[in-house]
């Protein structure tokens, strides 16, 4: 399995934006989802921002399949949230399904309520809003640009490299995870046929144990490779990428701010 969200080398307008511009977009997204939006009537608050994200995904020419991969990862969480809130939301009044009377923590967890499901839905939309912005930054900004931008911010060299190497390590972990899964399946360990409870109970020890042991070993090799390339030397490394803000960056930031303000206005109007 490929890592779904890794840098995709293209020459689109989104790729050419300064990393700061894209970081501002991510930052504004995170600020937006911090606004307490629990009621379904507040859904339109997030729609303009989701529209902006969709436009950026399209402008970056990122395949629909990658977005589908993101949705696949999140779908389980969304369903869980809606069911969990549906059964436990204490202010729920409109009963959709009743299984019986089972009072716990001030609510009847034997009933699935509309208000609870709506609350879970709103939480899901907020998660989706956040989750659609960070992959966009990663997929359209190379590690070298990210490092250069973080250097411009005068962040410590170690912090910059930890961030970038964590991104690099992700693909290695994906690859190892898949190889370990395959190796254990070959010993009749049918993880795909196990139900969720069995998986949680016994499936992950044979996967996670070798993964941790291998990661320790790889991390050691990684350290050797880094240090023998002069990584520990004092002083700031030579900057190989010179990044400058262009008019299109200011225009993009302007658009982000306008939409951000619009969302906030909607929040107080609705």
């Amino acid at each position: 399995m490929n890592v779904p969200f890794r840098y995709i080398q293209r020459r689109t307008i989104v790729h050419r934006l300064h990393p700061f511009t894209k970081m501002i977009y991510v930052l504004l997204t995170l600020l937006l989802i911090l606004i307490p939006l629990y009621d379904i009537r507040h859904l339109p608050v997030l729609l303009p921002w989701l529209g902006l994200s969709a436009a950026l995904w399209a402008a970056a020419r990122i395949e629909v399949g990658r977005f589908a991969a993101l949705m696949k990862i999140l779908a389980g969480t969304f369903i869980f949230l809606m069911l969990a809130q549906g059964f436990t939301y204490r202010y729920g009044k409109t009963v959709l399904i009743r299984f019986g009377e089972l009072h716990f923590g001030g609510s009847n967890v034997g009933e699935l309520t509309l208000e609870g499901v709506q609350l879970g839905f709103m939480l899901s939309v907020r998660i989706l809003t956040a989750a659609s912005s960070l992959p966009l930054l990663v997929m359209t900004t190379s590690n070298a640009e990210l490092m250069a931008a973080m250097n411009q911010l005068r962040l410590p060299k170690v912090m910059t490299f930890m961030f970038v190497s964590a991104l690099s390590f992700t693909s290695l972990i994906f690859e190892m995870w898949n190889n370990i899964m395959d190796a254990q399946k070959l010993r009749a360990f049918d993880i795909d046929r196990m139900n969720l409870i069995t998986r949680l109970r016994r499936a992950y020890v044979p996967i996670i144990t070798p993964l941790i042991l291998l990661l320790f070993r790889k991390a050691n090799d990684f350290q050797i490779a880094l240090e023998t390339k002069g990584f520990g030397s004092p002083g700031r490394p030579t900057e190989m990428e010179t990044l400058r803000m262009k008019p299109v960056d200011f225009l993009a930031i302007g658009i982000f701010l306008i939409i951000f303000v619009l969302c906030n206005v909607l929040r107080f109007r609705l």
Partner: peptide
């Protein structure tokens, strides 16, 4: 696999001398 950490071949090859603060043109 464990010796490559940069996003492009150019950045990879430049990584060592950049850490040693070799001037950009020389790199």
């Amino acid at each position: 696999e464990v010796q490559l950490f940069m996003p492009t071949v150019r950045a990879e090859v430049a990584f060592g001398p950049a850490n040693l603060q070799v001037p950009r043109e020389e790199i």
